[in-house]
Structures are given as structure tokens and as C-alpha cells.
Design a protein around this nucleic acid. Sequence first.
RNA 1: GCCCGAGUGGCGGAAUGGUAGACGCGCUGGACUCAAAAUCCUGUGUCCCUUAAAGACGUGUGGGUUCGAUUCCCACCUCGGGCACCA
Length: 910
Amino acid sequence: MDYDFRKIEAKWQKRWAEEKTYKVVEDSSKPKYYVLDMFPYPSGAGLHVGHPLGYIASDIYSRYKRLCGFNVLHPMGYDAFGLPAEQYAIQTGQHPEKTTDENIARYRSQLDRIGFSFDWDRSVRTCDPEYYKWTQWAFIKMFKSWYDPAMDKARPIAELIDRFEHEGYDGITPQQWKAMSEKEKSDTLMNYRIAYLGETSVNWCEELGTVLANDEVKDGLSVRGGYPVVQKKMAQWQLRVSAYAERLLAGLDKLEWSDSLKEMQRNWIGKSEGTEMVFDTECEGRHLPITIFTTRADTVFGVTFMVLAPESPLVQELTTSGQKAEVEEYLQYVSHKTERERQAETKNVTGVFSGSYGINPLTGEKIPIWISEYVLSGYGTGAIMAVPAHDSRDYVFARKFNLPIIPLIEGADVSAESFDAKEGTMMNSGFLNGMPVKQAIEAAKDYVEAHGLGRRKTNYRLRDAIFSRQRYWGEPFPIYYKDGIPTPLPDSELPLRLPEISSFRSQHGEAPLERAKDWTYKGYPLETSTMPGFAGSSAYYLRYMDPHNDSELVSADADRYWRSVDLYVGGTEHAVGHLIYSRFWNKFLYDIGCVCEDEPFRKLVNQGMIQGRSNFVYRKVGTNTFVSVGLKDKYETTEIHVDVNIVHGDKLDLEAFKAWRPEFADAEFELENGEYICGWAVEKMSKSMYNVVNPDEICETYGADTLRLYEMFLGPVEQSKPWDTKGIDGVHRFLKKFWRLFFDRDTLLVSDAKPSAAELKALHTLIGKEQEDIESFSYNTNISAFMIAVNTLTELKTSSREILEPLVVLLSPFAPHMAEELWEALGHSDSVTKAAFPEFNPALIVEDSVKYPVSFNGKMRFTVDLPKSASPAEVEAAVKALPDTARYVGNQTIVKVIVVPGRIVNIVLK
RNA sequence: GCCCGAGUGGCGGAAUGGUAGACGCGCUGGACUCAAAAUCCUGUGUCCCUUAAAGACGUGUGGGUUCGAUUCCCACCUCGGGCACCA
């Protein structure tokens, strides 16, 4: 019987589904392990070979952990709310639910073909009301909570109301509180709630008709669609993520994530420890203290001007009547610029003088106050002290407007550029003179605090997450407006289902839900925006633990058993979006006692992207003649993408090319050595570049086991690499060889013969390597080890069951279909999934050499590593060689001399 | 500009202080075959050389540490990723 992968794979996929082989239930007798993939957004294009890379890696890990005796939770679901489905609906009038269902069905069948060990009974989809009920539930919890800085955690809002009523809080006295109207009370509480409604400047995308989060915008364009994004002031629902900044930062230390990913999160959180300092200012006789934030308190002696953000409310206060016209003109100019334009023109310095002056608190000098767009209103206090000598932005500004520059660090040359580094010795700085910069910063902070000029302050760049989207295909907010006061629905009304609407297009910033009929609760209007994509993906890993529970997000029992995700596999593109929001969401649930772990993803592996490898043909301009790549420079040619599926090893299939598109039917060719060689490039895998490779085709030609093996053999999981089928025959050949260890045509070769030492060595080398490699995700080297083992065993003509049986178990995480088939052939009625990982015996793999401990000088110990066959004379010779080389050893204590047959190679220090 | 990460044969890559290039692809020659496919065997870093032996060189570049460096340190170059007026 030959290796008939089509038959074998279909047979086992059917059986796994029928017998629910991968169904998992909580089992306190076994240790648990939770392996999670980032669930996909089911797009219309279906899966290409890049998508399953991470799924294959995590599936191998899950199967390995099962063999090791763990109760493994390995679920899969769909992130099904989102813009593309809605955009498609706008274009075609099809309901997004319909296209989403179709796409999911397609994804499911593609995934099933690859042989994953998901427990599909636990599958979730974010657009399912039974699922988004819990997204809405969590939102209400956030609405009903505030962040208590004293306890450093979220607490019920009732506690805050109680404080306002009885003792007062944050400058509001009980008397003031009691005097407030309901609306005023509601507005006040909005300043504290974790989920709150607030006026804010948002990224508005006219084309998409919605606001976007900062991580949904890149270079002033929307990440999805690439449409322009502008700034606009709007009342939006927001999540107080910033309250968790310090905990989100500190929590990173405990996580097994890559350094680069942690670093990205740290940058995004952007902690900055500095000083808030008060400068007195004077505008037409009125005095107004303004607060600035700086990390360089040591440079106050070099402050020669101050700058306000154009959006700062202080601008109105500090503009003198003489400057009013000029300032107004500048504000007009700034307001007409989009965020994109502001970013694009960072070198073009603009600004205007306000007319008023501030007083340097240390020198008492009068310094002008300017207004410029280079100061951001959203960070710090929206006002800065400018030190042109030691800040490059202030320097450029000072040069442009001829403001004085005072150097404060000895030897710093500020004639051409500023000296930003925090090093050197202070000068021109009063009591700080002579100090190194770092020391001066601390001394200045102390001085400022001691003299009541300001205080130490930590700022974070992390902003609150804007949570409203003016679109249809998302979770509706469980909020209604009772006399204008936002009020949550009672839990018993959840889920609040998405209403039907007639047209999906939004106009003039009006949300699609505004057109829904009877979108009210008890006669009061319901909120018309919907939640963003990250809402549904923030706690999905919890729902997998207990997916059918309709009274709780997750039961305490299920949560205590599964706790958190042990291994999370996904791409880096979610580094600062999903992975921040999810951690925030989880920490909130932790605060309210809903979950028992405060970090959701203990270990995270980022799989690399699989890029496409595009092929090109070259058409002579004005003709229908195509020249091979080596000849293209002789003519003027146009480069044209050609479907990679009609190119094999960069050689174009001429007939297939003529048939590809009508305009090439009568194409002519100029060949090289009788062949047409295509050019190539590594690009993103996409339809428009004709470089998409579909996993179904690979499964059809080579089988799912080959696909799995090949994707892993391509290189390290974390690395990005182009898809290139050149090597796929190699792994396919390996599987056929593996098969032939067991079968010669129809004859099963397995016997009860005792294994030889060489056979045991080959097996146990592999067992040891597999343990090590899977734990470190070095799947590619492990497959190499498999190839070596199979070659050795083939050569040894192994038939021993004691070798072959464990070998099948070792193969099963990588090529589960073949492993099941062979396992059954070996006489097992149970799935190979239920087998145990073979026990590793390192004694069976020792080298044919022996270590001779040798003392030297009574102090150092040497280990001489010699072949067993070495004669005493050879050992002596090796040892005699030691003193010469050992001279260099100094106070090292152990030295190993590696002896390859006949010659001393080197010494090992330990 | 700032912060990460990476540079090894014709190609994907292996080796984390100890015989560089495992394993696979490709290519060379051969066996089987009428032939092909499939399968198996052989060789395959570069230079010198008809070939082989022997030798020299060789992990982006230049220095350093070490008996010994692809691996550790410093500087530079190139590529990839992230952040980018965050005071």
C-alpha cells in the first residue's frame, strides 16, 4: 500500500469530527494547558498559506502537550464584527451577517482540511448575540466603576457617590454635590467612570463615516482602506485605559513575551518621569500662573521663552489685544490643517507671539510666551518651557524667530544644533553649576519641590481608548438616554440586539443606527454608535473557558481551572492594539473579582508573516512579445505580474500563459536556452500581485501533513519568510520514507524483534531533541532530526515494534493524519492522541567516548574527552599536551580537552 | 531622528564559546527502466590544481576580549520592524 494521503486525511478528519476526538472538559485530575491562537477576521478572500502558519505551530504544541499528559484547551473562533463586511454590504446591499456567515463557512472548511485539533464545541463568534451579551455586560460594569487611585484599582461608582455625599472628594464638597442637578451629577461622574462619555478630539474618517482609534490610523490614513483621517471634536464613549498605565507597564515584567514586543508596549505607554512647574505670567496687568511639564528641570536657567499648544484654553487668556488679530489668524491656519499635514510638515516651523510674558521662577527673568503647533494639547499640560540650547525642537523654533539661546553644559557647541544628550557638566545654572547632568536633574527636582515651585510628576503617553464607532456592524451600546442622561440597561435586557436597518451607508457623520426603527428603550432613545473591533476580541479567551454559560461571562469554576492563556500565538500587528486593550480589559475584570489572574497571556509567540513570491514577465513596449528576464535589459520593456501558479521554478509555462488571459493568446516569446525565465520579487501576498497560494491546492497535491511539515520546515516560526514551494518535495519525500519504514506495498513490516543499540540510539536521540525543540518552537530543526532518524532507521532496516511505535507517537504532532493511520495499522483501536509521549533515556545516546578526569598542579581539573578506543599512550599524549596550553588558563578551574581521533582540537573552559 | 531585531554556500536555513555550513532544495555523476515517473547511491563553501592529496581562505566591514569567536564587547555599513514634534 502506497502512502495515499488523500484517502488517509479524509478518513481521519471525518473520524475526528464524528468522535469529537478533541473535545475537552475540565478535569481536575490532570494539569491544564491553554493554547490560544489569535482568532481570524473571516474576510471574503479566504485563507492563503500565510494564515495557517501560527495555527500549525500552536496545533503542534497542543498535540505535544496532550501527549505529555496535559488537559489542553485549544479553541478557535471568529472575530466577526468589522468594517470590510459592512463596506461590502454598502456596495452590494447584502446583509453583513449573510456574508460573514458565508465567509466563516469557507474558513471552517479550509481549516478542517489542515487537520487542526480544535475543540469546535467551544467556538465563539463575536457577532453572535449570545457572545456580545458579555461584551455589553462588561461595558456596563465599566460604566458602573471608577478608578480609585488610593486603592489602585477599579471600584463600584456607588462608593464614589457615597464619598461625594458624605465627605467630599477631589475638591467637590457634599454641599456642592447636593446642590447639583441630576444632569450635573451625571456629568461629574463621567470624569471618573472607567467607561465614560466625553468630548474629545477624534480621528475622523469621512470616507468610512466613523471615528478610529489611534492604532487604526497610520500616516494620517485609515489602516483599513487607506482613507484620509482628520481631527474633529466629538462626544464619544471612551475607556479609561490611562488609569491602568502603570499596571500595564509593570505587568510586562512577569510575561514571557519577546523583548521587542514588550518594548513596543512600553513605548506606547510612554512613561516619563519629570516635574510639573508653575510659571507666573502677566498679560496686560493680569497675573495667571501656568503649569508646564518637563523632564529636564535642570535646564530651567536656559529657558528663554514658553510655548502653548494652539488648542490650549490658556491661549485666549494670554493673548494681548495688540496680538489678537495675528493670533486669531494663526489659530485659523492651524485648525484647517489635518493631523496628516501636521505630521508631514515637521520641519516647517510655525508659531505666533501671544504678546504676554512669563517669569522664569529661578532667574526672575521675563520671557515671551509663544503659540505653536509643535506643542501638543493632549500631552502634559499643553504648555512648555523652551530650552533651545538643549532641545532640538525648541532650538529650531528659536532660530526661526530669533529667540536667545543660552548653553548650560560645558563644552556643548550650540552654534549649529542643540545638545540634547543628558551628559556633561552644568554651567550658567546657579546652584547647579559643576554638577553632572543626571545629578543636576535630581537636584533641580528637589529644589523645585522644596521651594514650592512645583512637584514631581509622571506622565504617560497612553491615551484613553475611544470606544464609539458611527457604523452598523458592531456591538450596540447597552445605553439609553433618560432625559439626556446616559443610563445603562438592566442586565436582564442583555443582549441588546443589533436592529435591522434598510441602508448601511452613513452620511454626514450620522450613525447608521439613527435610521433604525424604534431604536428606543421604554420610550427613551438608545445610543446609536456601536463598539469598535477590539471590543469583542478583548475577552474572547475567557469565553472559550465556558462558552455556553448564559448566566455568567465565565463561571468561577471554569476560570479557576483554566486561569489564563499559557501560550498565545499570533502576529505582531496587534502589539499595541488588541494586546493592550485585552490586558486592560482583563485587569478590569480582575479588579471586580470576575477573573483570578490579572494578566491574560502568560507566554506569547509572534509568528512571522509569510510573504508572497511574485513572478514577472517582460513585454517589449508596443508589442506582444515577451522576453526572458536575462534579455530584458536589451529592450525597453514593461514588467507585468504573472500568476505564480503557471510558473514552476521561475520557468514560465508558455501554453498556460497563453491561456491565462485572452490578450496573451497570441503572445510571442524570446527565450533563454529554450526556456522563458521569469523575474521575481518578495511582496505581500495579495490577489492583485497574482502571488496568492491557496492551502487547499497544497493539500490536494501533497496533503495536509506535507503542508504542515513544510510550513514549519521553512524556517523559525517567528521569522517572516517568502512562500516558495521549491523545497516542498523534500518534506513530502520524507513522509513517504517514513511510511516505507512500516509498509512494503501491502505488507506491514513491523515485528517483535528486539531493537539494536543503534536503533535505540536513533530513537532516543530524536525523543530528546523533540522535547527540547518543541518547548523552544524550533520546529524546523526538529523536522531535520526526524529526517536523520528516519534515514538511519531505514538503513538499519528497522522492524522492531519497540522502535516504530514510539516513532509514530513522536510524529503525531506534526503529521497527525499519517500517525493515526499507522497507529491503527499497529493494532491500536484508540486515537494516537491518547498515547503518551515516549520516555527519554539519555543513557542510550551516549557517545562512543569516555572522559578521563586528570588533575594538574593539584589545583586545576581537566577532563580529557577521548574515543573509547583510545590507547593509554594516546591518553597520555593528550594529557601531556595540557600544561602547554594550560598556561593560558589562569585561574579557571575546569578545562575540557576535546580530542577528535588522532588530534587535540581545543580546550574547553567551564 | 530615536528604540528593537537581523546579516552564514546558488537558495531556505543549522550550530549561542569548542571539528562552521546539520537537514532540505538545487545542481553533478551513476544504478534501475525500452523510456519516463518514482526510488536508491555518489559528489557538492571558495581559492590554488587536469584531478586528488596537502594547504590557504571563509559566518556584512574594521578593531577588541579569549588558548579558541558565527556566538561575547566596541565602532561602522546594509537590510527589516516599531515609534516619531510626547517637552
